[in-house]
Amino acid sequence: MMLPISTLAVMETYQFSDPALELRYRKLSAELRCPKCQNQNIAESNAPISKDLRRILYEQLEAGSSDPEILDYMSLRYGEFVRYRPVFSRETALLWMAPIAFLFFGLGFLWFVVRRGVRNAGDETDLPAVSENLEPFFAKDDSKS
């Protein structure tokens, strides 16, 4: 039998009253982070705490809680840490903004490089200009002689 490791790790199965609940269970258990093991979601982790959180997730789903209610219920106890997509706040601002900041930094850098390239391309004396740039590094200080 060739089962993927992730299905082997999780031993228990739950019977859902509605297939839609099972879909939400899959989605939410992939989005909740195991507090003990840190780099696994609770769907893949076989730590006891993840098993507990899966059971609570199942109970909450069957009790009719909405997705935001369940995520709040979890993060109220374990902090934003348990969510792979934490709520935007002062603490998580850097986490959310860093990719955008890097994108703008990269775009700015690209713009700078391309613009310089265009300017140099318009210059017919391209090669001499480059060697002139390098000259200060190679040339000995003539002022002494």
């Binding site: 507090p35 840190q38 993060s75 109220l76 106890r77 374990y78 902090g79 934003e80 840490f81």
Partner: peptide, 9 residues
Amino acid sequence: NPASIPSAM
């Protein structure tokens, strides 16, 4: 220490 998670409590 990545294992020290601040408690939400």
